[in-house]
Design a protein around this nucleic acid. Structure first.
Lengths: 135, 135
DNA sequence: AATGTACATTCAATTTCTTGAATAGAAGAA
DNA sequence: TTCTTCTATTCAAGAAATTGAATGTACATT
């Protein structure tokens, strides 16, 4: 009776499309906030809000590196849960593998963090910025 | 972007302790409403409300047998998802196997449906009613 | 110290979820 | 048909989640 609430609280954290997208992205590699900003197309404060929820649920951990804060999944079993959810969703509505196709599959979007653009300093001009997210 | 909403809607259906308990119970065997009433300790209308949500999410299917309506999981992969969720919840808060222990493990609670008490008709007196749920 | 960059937090308005109460519907027995 | 049993639905009030806007904080450069 106690753990039912624990599990349901966990599932609630997954029950949001943007949070799901963040978790999928982090399932591929750790990412800074500005990267998630670029990938999801949402404003920074909004992403930070969702990351706060994911942090409170214990699903992500953060690590600061200079100006950037890099987030990653707290546990590899989280990706297993996501995969199981896709299977159920596929079975429920019949579009079995459509989930994996539509979900983010490659890092075609990038930001100006040292991870995405290791050669540029934040204080140099960057005419090759991919998204314009970084200021 | 479309399927992210599908998966998150699915997870929302799991994000409720009573709905989770119902799904766990149905994971062991199909059950009528009055049985779920007995197991969860909630009123009939409340259980029907949660079953409606689960039905809309495509997680359960129903089958009428006389006065009783028996619900069951629409797919076996749903139990896999529940198990994956337990694993994540266990990893998150460190009480790994506590979930499975606390969750309903045996049918010590029964109701008056023909499945729980095959020998009694609904219209015969039943001094051996287990829970008093059935009227 | 002053400024700029990346990120976090708070607040409030809106929307959605939850849940108790009442009622309605379906099917069997008499 | 009438009554009983089991289940479904509707409604409304309260609780919680969502999200835009504004602001606050940490760190780096100069």
């Amino acid at each position: 009776m106690h753990t039912l609430k624990q599990v349901s609280d966990l599932m609630k954290a997954f029950g949001h499309p943007v949070r799901l997208q963040i978790l999928y992205e982090l399932g591929r590699d750790e990412a800074c906030v500005c990267h998630l900003e670029a990938v999801t197309g949402h404003r920074q404060a909004y992403i930070s809000q969702q990351l706060m929820r994911l942090r409170e649920a214990g699903l992500v951990v953060d690590r600061r590196d200079g100006l950037n804060v890099f987030y990653s999944l707290s546990n590899t079993s989280i990706s297993d849960l996501l995969h199981a959810a896709e299977t159920v969703a596929g079975g429920v509505n019949g579009t079995a593998l459509d989930v994996a196709v539509t979900l983010p599959t490659g890092r075609e979007v990038g930001c100006c963090c040292p991870k995405c653009e290791p050669e540029t300093s934040p204080y140099l001009e960057r005419e090759n910025a991919l998204t314009g997210v970084c200021r």
